[in-house]
Structure formats: C-alpha cells, structure tokens
Amino acid sequence: MNMKKLVIKASDFVKVQAAKTHMVLANNRGDGYIDTAVKILIAVVLGALLLAGLYALFGDVVMPTLTNKIKGMFNYAG
C-alpha cells in the first residue's frame, strides 16, 4: 500500500510539473526585443534632432548676438 501511494504521488507531481511547463511555454506576455529596439531607435533619432536644432540655434542666433554684445562692451571709442 505504501508503494502505491508513492507511485501515485510521483505521478501527480509529474502531471503538475508538466502543466506548469505547458503554461510557461504557452505564455506570450511581455516586451519583445523588437519593441525595445524600436524604442531605443526612436530615442536616438529624437535626441539627434534635438541636438542638431540646438546646435543650429546657438550657431546662427545666440553666438553672433553674444559676439556683438561683447565687442560693444569693450568698445571704449564709441
């Protein structure tokens, strides 16, 4: 009788583990690698656009104005 209980217990354990394994393998939730790659690519492109915009703004607008104001501050003749 003791051996029969042991076999039944082992059989139940194997069935439970098989069911758990099936559930894990059938699970398709979560973030994929493609989603993460697309997010990183979007962040890099937006960062590059922002950096290019700031560089253009400082190069064309801020720096010439700043240069003229500094020259005006040190122009003692006029």
Rank of each mutant, 00 (worst) to 15 (best):
G53F: 07
K39D: 01
M3P: 01
Y33V: 04
A18H: 04
P64V: 04
V45Q: 15
K9F: 03
M63Q: 11
G32Y: 14
D60S: 12
L50N: 11
D35N: 05
K69S: 11
Y33M: 05
D12W: 04
I34R: 05
G78A: 08
K4N: 03
I42Q: 15
L51K: 03
K4R: 03
D12F: 07
K15P: 00
M3F: 02
A10M: 07
A48P: 00
M3I: 01
N75C: 08
V14F: 10
M1I: 02
N28A: 03
V16P: 00
K71N: 04
M63V: 08
V7Q: 10
Y55F: 05
G78Q: 05
Y33D: 03
A43V: 06
V61L: 13
R29N: 15
A26W: 02
N68W: 03
I40G: 02
L25Y: 12
K69C: 04
V24N: 10
L49Y: 02
T21N: 10
K9V: 02
G47T: 12
G47H: 11
I34A: 06
V38P: 00
L49F: 03
K20S: 15
S11T: 11
V45K: 15
M23H: 12
A18I: 07
D60A: 12
G32I: 14
T67P: 01
N2K: 13
I40Y: 08
L49H: 03
L57G: 12
V24P: 01
A52Q: 15
L41D: 09
S11D: 10
I8W: 13
T36Q: 08
G53Q: 07
M23E: 14
V14G: 06
I70W: 14
V44W: 08
L57W: 13
N28M: 02
Y76V: 13
K4Q: 04
G53E: 07
A77Y: 09
K15A: 11
V38F: 01
V61W: 06
N68P: 00
V16K: 09
Y55W: 09
A43C: 11
N68M: 04
K20E: 15
L41G: 10
N27G: 06
N68V: 02
K9R: 02
V38W: 00
T21L: 10
G59A: 14
Y76T: 13
A37D: 13
G53N: 11
N27Y: 10
T67V: 12
G30M: 01
H22Q: 06
F13I: 03
P64C: 05
I8N: 14
N27S: 13
L46K: 09
K4F: 04
G59I: 05
A10W: 06
Y55E: 08
M63P: 01
M73T: 07
V62R: 02
N28W: 01
L25M: 12
V7K: 12
I70Q: 14
N27W: 09
M73K: 06
L54K: 05
N28F: 02
P64M: 04
Y33E: 03
L54G: 09
M23W: 09
G59V: 08
V24H: 08
